[in-house]
Nucleic acid binder design. Structure first.
Lengths: 214, 214, 214, 214
DNA sequence: TATGAATGAGGGTTCATTCAT
DNA sequence: TATGAATGAACCCTCATTCAT
């Protein structure tokens, strides 16, 4: 998606270019966007400052690309795989799993922590990123609505619930450490349980009881 | 629109100083710490840059004070009131209420959004702030542990649950708008329900049924 | 001498004022004039910055006063006592003694090290200080001329010799330490010998031989 | 008047860098280190402030380089040439000649006047400079010791005598003017005479008598 | 592609000085 | 006398960006 970049002939051009984005994501996340200088990015990428500018046009465009790339990953790792799942509850469970997998293991944690740097973008870039962010919220709210409808839960606002869920999932970038005490699987299980039982109540309890019974 | 400078009297010193902190919290939140210049803070406080330095010693110390003050507010608005509540479930419900009240209405939203700027602080300041943040997580985990013990829930790790809760609560700074469609009360009710039913399951359902019956 | 300052009635006004000068001389010497802030001077004198300005009119005037005071000391400790000595050789010996006594013990070392800060003074202040410095060189050259004339030494330019002597004497501020290995008396004796024998040659040798013989 | 900017070629880097050091030495000497702004240095070097920082890393490091370079010059112009001279007296005479030649003509005067700015350096830089300064004093004292031993002079402390000599030589930066009344040769002759006759007494007188006789 | 050199703009901070109280 | 607060100017330094080579 997003065919902004034309094909180039030189062999490793795209290779270098992509390394720049990955490196930039990492450095932006580690030091903060404003606190990262183009020198930092350049030397982390093994380039000189002037060399860096052969691959990008400005610091801001680099941020845009990094954020956009992060959302591309979300699309590839979370949104598209969900399309194949028809049962609403299973989709929701899977979404929690995939989202955490992406954030905690695919280095996308970095991008999550950068999402609020949108502020810095130009108006048009910002609105493009925001549109994609909102799409994701809308998708989550949609899945939740399907689940509550199926299980006949009435008093849950899907949008608010989606915000609650995304808060749980994204806040992990504030505390998760690879070397910490909880594995990703534990986190996934716990969060699935809290959120699903949270919106479904006894319906979920019953389901789990059945599942275990089998 | 804040008159420029009223007649000065002795004792005004602390007044101005406190105004600086409040203004700084607001500006740091709005523009981001790194992207805020001391000129920005100064003029928002109705001072010149040099005048600002009469009240603080450095930009970094200003950030520290703002964060520390935010945590003071948390202590005053959330932690201390909870001390008077003995029933674990009621404490947890109240904590969610007070925390959201603080974040969404007492202008502490600003500080919440700044918490990850810790990075910028000196090592000693950073560790002081981190200690207080961890204490809060510990407190939340403690309350959750009390609740699960009382209701005989076995398979919830209190620390992970606390992170889930704080994610839900704090992420609000990313999406909440005073002018938005949800009132604070709705959010409180929804989040209480999702989280409490999430960890307690049928125990919570039963309790709510009873409460409604009365 | 220099009646710039009028008499004041308030009891300890002059006391404080003089302390300011002494303290300023010390601080200027220790940190360098440009590197000393008025805050430094004020707090070293036990005053606030604004309080300091009740005693002086500007930083530059403070430097002028300090330098001028140092030259007053030279007049009092070196120049005037020499007036009573009629034998040229004895005057020269005594001048070396008194000058080193002043520089090394009367805290005037500080002023000596400041003499080249003249640069900073206003044109008129600078020329006043320079006039006094030149007077001192002229006096030294005069004494040297008397000595060489008396002992019939022909090939010594008194002015150049005076510069050599003042170099020896004043450079001490670069290396002398109260706790060092040489006492002031040793320095005086060595420098007297080097300079006097240096300009007089055998005449000085003979004289010393006689002196010892008696 | 130094053309603004000639065509640039590779290799010009070191050229510009060295010009920066020379210019800085001159400006620091003329205005004093603290009183010299980086703008002053930059524009004296035909650069902008930011451009200047391509060649140096800080004002302090620039001072260090200037001082270190001055000591390099001393090594090249004074210390090394002396190594080839075996007769102690001739070495001392030559040292006076070369030192004054360096200070008065090779523009090193500037550095001499800066030596006491050491204060500003970082601890490690300062100690490196001080070590070199002490080495020079030690060398001078060594030469003096050789001379007095050869001529059987007993009562001269070589270290004190070295300080006296260096005072004479270095103080020149306070009064020497190219346009003044004394030529460098006169100064050299006078100072050689005063110092050598000063430490050797009749031994030197005799030697000079012989030299003249031939 | 890649780079060393350069720069205008702006950053945080300090300073000598003033003034109402 | 004394002071806390305030300020304009200046300082050192960094940054994103450009350009000749």
């Amino acid at each position: 998606m997003r065919e902004k970049r034309q094909k180039r002939q030189s062999g490793n051009g795209d290779f270098t270019r992509n390394r720049v984005f990955e490196v930039a994501a990492e450095v932006f996340h580690r030091k903060g966007y404003d606190n990262t200088s183009m020198s930092d990015v350049a030397s982390a990428a093994g380039l000189t400052k002037a060399g860096l500018y052969h691959h990008i046009s400005s610091k801001e465009s680099l941020l845009y690309t990094v954020l956009d790339y992060g959302l591309d990953l979300t699309e590839a790792y979370v949104i598209r795989p969900l399309a194949g799942i028809s049962d609403p509850l299973e989709r929701l469970e899977t979404m929690i799993d995939l989202h955490l997998r992406l954030v905690l293991e695919e280095r996308n944690l970095e991008v999550t922590g950068l999402l609020h740097e949108c502020r810095t973008l130009s108006a048009s870039d910002r609105s493009r990123i925001n549109r994609r962010k909102k799409e994701y919220v809308r998708m989550a709210a949609g899945i939740i609505a399907d689940v509550t409808k199926k299980y006949n839960v009435k008093d849950v606002d899907p949008k608010l619930a989606a915000y609650a869920l995304l808060g749980m999932l994204n806040w992990t970038y504030q505390w998760y450490k690879t070397s910490g005490s909880s594995t990703r699987e534990e986190i996934v299980r716990t969060f699935q349980r809290i959120f699903l039982q949270g919106i479904l109540g006894s319906a979920w309890v019953d389901r789990q009881a059945n599942a275990t019974a089998h």
